[in-house]
């Protein structure tokens, strides 16, 4: 009896050890002191002017997405042309192997993260914003326990220029910047969509503001219909992470209306 108990304990310890063995454990400071320190300096210099710009756009909330879309058509075309040949399913009207509906004309196709190589020698810049100001309009639905982490102006990460390496995705930039700035962020890997899913940023999680709430990202004003690990960034891209309380409708996302779900 006693030996069985010991064996069981040993098996348990081994199982836990195996589970933990596959994990990478890092201290919060590790990344901040790593290779990407230059980007924080860049963001420090360019930060102030962009911040003012951001304050302007935040007043006209609903139209903001469409504004950005018209303003950045140039880079859209560039990235669309670059990636168009990557995926053959462009206009076939069927889902690809990761359940993604066809990407609209002129928008970049998803790039699988396992197929892209990060070139650490080529540094590019993009713009990143993380905000949750839609919650301020839906305070009645918001999880009262999370009030202490809700920023008064709804801005978690004010618009800044950040450095990234060629071949990185929207997710890579989000992960690096949240870690560098000590912003909490949780994601899960979803192999079905071949992407990481962002569950919560700054302790504001999906479903914290009603059952249709969660985090969405848009690049150059367009909300991609695929996951953020599959969006290959181009130089000068404008990334926004926005919190939606209404499945994207309050952010001006239109493709969810057509009965397409992602």
């Amino acid at each position: 009896m006693k030996r069985n108990w010991r064996k069981g304990l040993l098996a348990l310890v081994l199982a836990v050890g195996l589970c933990l063995g596959g994990c990478t454990v890092e201290r919060p400071e590790d990344l901040a002191s790593g290779g990407a320190t230059q980007s924080s300096q860049i963001s420090g210099e360019g930060g102030s002017s962009i911040l003012e710009e951001n304050a302007d756009t935040s007043e006209q909330d609903g139209s903001q997405a469409s504004d950005a879309a018209s303003g950045s058509s140039q880079s859209d075309a560039a990235s669309g042309g670059q990636t168009g040949s990557g995926n053959a399913n462009g206009a076939s009207g069927e889902k690809d192997q990761y359940q993604t509906d066809p990407v609209p004309e002129g928008k970049p196709q998803p790039q699988e993260p396992q197929d892209t190589e990060v070139d650490e020698n080529t540094k590019l810049t993009c713009t990143l914003t993380i905000r949750c100001d839609t919650i301020l309009d839906h305070m009645d639905q918001f999880n009262k326990e999370k009030l202490s982490v809700l920023p008064a102006d709804g801005i978690i990460y004010s618009t800044r220029q950040v450095t990234f390496y060629e071949g990185e995705s929207v997710f890579d930039v989000l992960l690096r910047e949240t870690r560098k700035n000590r912003i909490h962020m949780e994601f899960t890997e979803t192999p079905l969509y071949n992407s990481n899913y962002i569950e919560g940023i700054h302790n504001i999680y999906e479903f914290d503001c009603g059952e249709l709430s969660g985090w969405m990202y848009c690049v150059n004003g367009w909300y991609p219909n695929y996951g953020c690990s599959r969006y290959l960034l181009q130089d000068g891209d404008v990334i926004q992470w926005n919190y939606t309380c209404d499945l994207g409708r309050d952010l001006g996302v239109d493709w969810l209306e057509n009965g397409q779900k992602n």
């Binding site: 994990c23 990478t24 454990v25 890092e26 201290r27 919060p28 590790d30 990344l31 982490v149 870690r179 000590r182 909490h184 949780e186 919560g200 302790n203 999680y205």
Partner: peptide, 10 residues
């Protein structure tokens, strides 16, 4: 992974 006090990254 909720919580404001981040100790480590796993």
């Amino acid at each position: 992974h909720q919580g404001v006090t981040i100790l480590l990254y796993v």
